[in-house]
Design a protein around this nucleic acid. Structure first.
Length: 1063
DNA sequence: TCTGAGTCAATAGC
DNA sequence: GCTATTGACTCAGA
């Protein structure tokens, strides 16, 4: 290794910058001067480095840049108008070009240097495509036949090199290959999208494309060229039910404009100035974002370089192409690129997943801060597994941070090394054969090491494929001989635990005592707990021991591993669909597709044609379509197996009388031991036996079988996303029943099973929202509950946990007493905070604001007048009540939210019950609700009844008496109640001159204007006469909420077609 | 910037 | 000691 081979200028318009495992070649479009604008990399506090000349890119800078990029290339932004051509370097280059190999040198290749790591070998300038004139490249690209290796792909590099498993950097950054792949893909995406603004004549090619045959073909007539992002995909994405494009209208691949014409793709040129269907692109992007649960913020950040607000604006109201400025067109170019390859979406989804997990970081960090000593090496390694989270840590941005990152990476590698030695056989083999690869600890950045790493990567991929093969076969087979247990046994352990009791344990001193190695409880096993942050949908498993479960958790394995579970679930969904008349049309569409693949297009289209267009659907109404899509994508050959599994299923969750452990099969024993390592209650569904003896089984039952996370390869998020409609009421009812019967507390249940606090559990159990009103995140606890209910050992486990907690508490207490001081905390949980905090800390705590009755009533009154008060009103209220404006704001937010939720409950109950359960969801639910009646009604009853009748505030208001009128009218009018009546009445509550007239007009306007008075049915779902006090109560609440609805109606009226209003 | 969704955690109430 | 309540907060979308 000689002196570093610094990047080189290639004329005035060419710049070569070595990155990490690829290089970027950039030139400024159509410029004759400096090519390099600004290199920006985020993560380091948005630091910007302007490289106006090559000399600016000092070795040190480059080192840092590369070091950083090794870990977080996602944050590497190419110049806005740069053309980027990444390609493989390192041994691949050597392998491909002897000439270039001879010239390869490595920057910072001092083997003794531990930080930063040696940079990868760089190909010589002659190897760099941009060392040639752009037109030359264009010509070359144009004339390349589809069977040839791309001229700028290092010669001889086969597709195997460009596998999803990318080489590790210098043998040091042994990150999960999947991560690397996704990072690279994202970088590609970003880079190519950035370059999409290049105007005609500009060149773009993708040297990563081994052959041009993989370049996607165009949609006829699109005429619009796109950068063949798909072509840059190293490999087709693994088949996945929820990711694979659909042969329908709403696909990435079939995007009308995204796909380039073949010729365009061949040349890789991008022709600007052609018309683009912005609405269609926006529609498809929205569709993909929703489908994959990717947020606008992330999409905007990584793909468009825009803020979430801008993304929202663009997606919601795309301007016509001809109305856009050049700059305004850029996002659409980028979106088109984004849509062009599923890999982009996969990568973004992964990023999103990690970001979301990262958002949970504070809690985890807090925990670790609280118990720093417990943060072991493996913890650290795992902790750093979340790249995004790491980069976003506040300390990032300094050299110290870089060192820290590198140090962490080293540890990660070490841990992986250990893991490799006893993980999958393939890893062992890799280690043995790798020589100077990852197993070598990356002490050398030599070609040998890189070659070794490449070899390792390839083997890794092969190992993954080999491991997946039987599963893939099984999933594609229609044989009914494959039992669910077969599937489970063939699927490896859980990649994505839902909730890590480690967090709980760490944050509670008392619980921490339970960490005794002798403890038999999985939850107590610190070394085995999997971090909550690893609940990523990416399928990347960063277990607490730092091991990278690549083979099991890659997208491929996850998808493949899903097969049985997904199919099983799909079947459930399918049967549910059959029972749901509301989805009959969708069902028909799906059925047709089930029978004839060729008829897909997107039948669905037929269905869609009879419905609102996608962009006119709200999230709720999109759900059936979202569910149809994965179904359409997947195979349907597992029904027999599914049915069999169903038939073998047992019943749900036992209560105390039946919670004794079922005889365990060897499998369940084995699983138990494995699952015990994770300590994950959900993963511990060792013997999932969906209920079949429940005559009412099916949708809306607590026993609705769900696939087991982990075993099925599904993350909890994926499960939630694909879940059939669950009866949240029935589930919560059952959970309450089980908890009560077994004297299990909400705290224990919440913290160990749901990952929620007691308060949240209480809230959830008391006021479960209807499934369709829940966001994906909101559905998660219900899926967890459902899974918990399905576990025949659930109660037993929880009771064990309870006993252990108690034991630990007693032990702690005894210990404290012997030490001569009392324990100020009780059992772990309720008061652990006090117990763990010093008096000083407690004093620093902001005291909780407790509103007095008068203040509450005043606020309620104000709410009735104006559920959405203006800032001025808020200020006035705050001033009058001597409250902070934020308190008033929060109160209104909370009140609106809670009154809505209360209405959901009441509506369900008033509608005659919930679910279809044989146990009569409704009657029992009512019973239970009645039991909690006071507390349940509490919030909103206060908001209506008390206000009016109790404290007489309503009475003070001349409109208060209208409540009775309203009820009387409601009851007398029954279903004939018109919105106007209610509106008038409710608006009457608002007082003269306030919202009455206005709201009344608004609602009237809607009713009159919209034929059929749809608003009536929407606003008044309980159309029948009030027959009982509960109905009255419901009506009161409706009245209290009506202003809220009116407000939204009025708001919507300003921009929406009334016929499409949804509430 | 506003809003809703989801959640936490302090506190009230049983 | 348990659950319910509720003010405050974060996050994401419009």
């Amino acid at each position: 290794m000689g002196q570093a081979n610094l990047p080189e200028w290639h004329g005035d318009n060419c710049f070569v910058c070595p990155l990490v495992f690829f290089q970027a070649v950039a030139y400024k479009k159509g410029c004759n001067h400096k090519c390099m604008g600004t290199f920006v990399w985020g993560g380091w506090q948005k630091r910007k480095t302007t490289l106006t000349n090559l000399e600016d890119l000092t070795k040190t800078t480059l080192k840092r840049l590369c070091s950083f990029l090794v870990l977080e290339p996602l944050f590497c932004w190419l110049p806005h108008n740069a053309l980027c051509v990444p390609f493989l370097v390192g041994s691949a280059g050597r392998k491909g070009t002897e000439e270039s190999a001879a010239k390869e040198e490595t920057l910072g290749s001092d083997p003794s240097s531990s930080s930063p790591p040696p940079l990868p070998s760089l190909p010589s300038s002659s190897q760099l495509p941009m060392s040639r004139a752009p037109m030359d490249l264009l010509n070359t690209a144009t004339t390349t036949s589809s069977s040839e290796t791309h001229p700028f792909t290092p010669t001889g590099i086969g597709q195997d090199i460009y596998s999803p498993v990318f080489p590790l950097v210098g043998g040091k950054m042994a990150l999960n290959s999947l991560i690397q792949r996704q990072l690279l893909q994202t970088f590609y995406s970003k880079a190519l999208q950035e370059s999409s603004g290049i105007h005609s004549g500009a060149l773009l090619f993708t040297p990563f494309t081994p052959t041009l045959s993989s370049i996607p073909t165009s949609t006829p007539g699109s005429g619009s060229a796109a950068i063949p992002l798909a072509a840059s995909s190293p490999q087709p994405p693994p088949a996945s039910p929820d990711m694979a494009p659909v042969n329908g209208s709403s696909t990435v691949g079939s995007a009308p404009s995204p796909s380039p014409s073949h010729s365009d793709a061949t040349t890789g040129s991008l022709l600007d100035g052609e018309d683009m269907d912005t609405a269609e692109i926006a529609r498809q992007v929205k569709e993909q974002l929703i489908k994959h649960n990717i947020g606008q913020r992330v999409f905007g950040h990584y793909v468009l370089g825009l803020s979430q607000g801008s993304v929202s604006e663009i997606l919601a109201r795309p301007k016509p192409w001809n109305k856009l400025t050049i700059r305004g067109k850029e996002p659409f170019h980028k979106m088109r690129q984004f849509l062009a390859d599923e890999q982009n979406i996969l990568a973004l989804r992964s990023i999103q997943g990690r970001q979301r997990e990262g958002s949970g970081q504070p809690q985890l960090s807090r925990v670790f801060q609280d118990v720093p000593k417990r943060r072991t090496l493996s913890d650290t390694a795992s902790h750093t597994g979340n790249i995004t989270a790491r980069v976003r840590t506040p300390e990032a941005g300094s050299d110290e941070a870089i060192k820290s990152i590198l140090e962490q990476a080293k540890r990660e590698l070490q841990v992986q090394k250990v893991d490799l030695s006893h993980a999958q056989p393939s890893y062992a083999g890799l280690k043995g054969g790798g020589g100077g690869g990852a197993g070598s600890g990356g002490s050398s950045g030599s070609d040998e090491a890189i070659r070794s790493i490449l070899e390792q990567a390839r083997r890794e991929m092969e190992a993954q494929q080999a491991a997946l093969e039987p599963i893939l076969k099984a999933s594609s087979s229609s044989s009914s001989s494959l039992s669910q247990r077969d599937l489970l046994s063939s699927t490896l352990t859980a990649p994505l635990p839902p909730y890590n009791p480690l967090v709980l344990s760490l944050k509670k001193p008392a619980s921490a005592l339970l960490s005794s190695p002798s403890s038999p409880s999985p939850i107590l096993d610190f070394s085995s707990g999997v971090k909550r942050e690893s609940r990523s949908s990416s399928g990347i498993d960063m277990s607490a021991d730092g091991a990278l479960r690549v083979g099991r958790t890659s997208e491929g394995s996850a998808r493949s591993g899903n097969a049985g579970g997904v199919g099983y679930w799909r079947e459930q969904w399918w049967s549910n669909m059959h029972t749901d008349s509301r989805r009959s049309i969708s069902n028909q569409a799906g059925e047709e597709n089930h029978n004839q693949e060729d008829s897909k297009e997107g039948i669905l289209g037929d269905g869609v044609s009879r419905h609102k267009p996608w962009n006119k659907l709200n999230q709720r109404n999109r759900e059936p379509y979202l569910r149809m899509q994965p179904w359409l994508n997947g195979d349907q050959g597992q029904n027999a197996h599914i049915q069999q599994a169903q038939n073998q299923a047992e019943s749900t969750p036992k209560t105390s009388a039946s919670c004794s452990p079922a005889p365990e099969s060897p499998l369940s024993s084995a699983e138990e031991s494995v699952n015990g390592l994770t300590g994950d209650p959900l993963i511990s569904q060792s013997s999932l036996k969906p209920p079949s003896d429940d005559p009412s089984g099916g949708e809306s039952q607590p026993g609705t079988p769900l696939p087991v996370p982990g075993h099925s390869g599904l993350s909890i998020q994926e499960m939630v996303a694909m879940s059939p409609e669950l009866d949240t009421y029935a589930i919560t009812k059952k959970v309450k029943e089980v908890l009560t019967d077994n004297n299990l507390g909400q705290r224990l249940f919440g913290e160990t099973i749901l990952g929620l606090t007691q308060g949240s559990v209480s809230d959830l159990l008391a006021r479960p929202k209807p499934w369709h009103k829940l966001s994906l995140k909101g559905r998660e606890p219900f899926v967890r509950m459902q899974l918990w209910l399905q576990d025949p050992h659930s109660v037993e486990k929880l009771m064990d946990m309870k006993r252990l907690e108690k034991k630990a508490y007693m032990k702690r207490r005894l210990s404290s007493l012997s030490d001569g001081h009392l324990v100020d905390g009780g059992l772990p949980g309720s008061d652990y905070v006090q117990g763990s905090q010093s008096p000083g800390q407690q004093q620093l705590k902001k005291p909780r604001v407790v509103l007095g009755p008068e203040e509450k009533e005043a606020l309620k009154k104000a709410y009735q007048q104006k559920p959405y008060p203006s800032p001025k009103t808020i200020e006035e209220l705050a001033s009058q009540l001597n409250l902070k404006t934020s308190t008033v704001i929060n109160w209104f937010h909370n009140y609106r939210s809670r009154i809505r939720r209360e209405l959901f409950i009441e509506e369900i109950q008033a509608a005659g019950g919930v679910g279809t359960g044989s146990e009569g969801g409704s009657p029992s639910l009512r019973g239970s609700k009645s039991g909690e009646g006071d507390s349940c009604d509490g919030t909103e009853s206060e908001g209506t009844a008390e206000t009016r009748h109790g404290l007489g505030i309503g009475m003070e208001d001349p409109r208060g008496c209208k409540d009775h009128d309203m009820e009387a009218e409601s009851e007398a009018g029954g279903s004939n109640n018109s919105p106007a009546q209610l509106d008038c009445t409710t608006s009457g509550l608002a007082g003269p001159g306030s919202s009455c007239g206005q709201s009344g007009l608004g609602l009237f306007g809607l009713t009159d204007a919209s034929s059929g008075g749809s608003a009536s049915s929407t606003i008044l779902p309980a159309s029948g006469p009030a027959r009982n006090p509960r109905d009255n109560n419901l009506r009161k609440k409706k009245a209290a909420n009506l202003n809220n609805i009116i407000h939204r109606l009025e708001k919507a009226a300003s921009k929406e077609d009334p016929s499409e209003w949804e509430f």
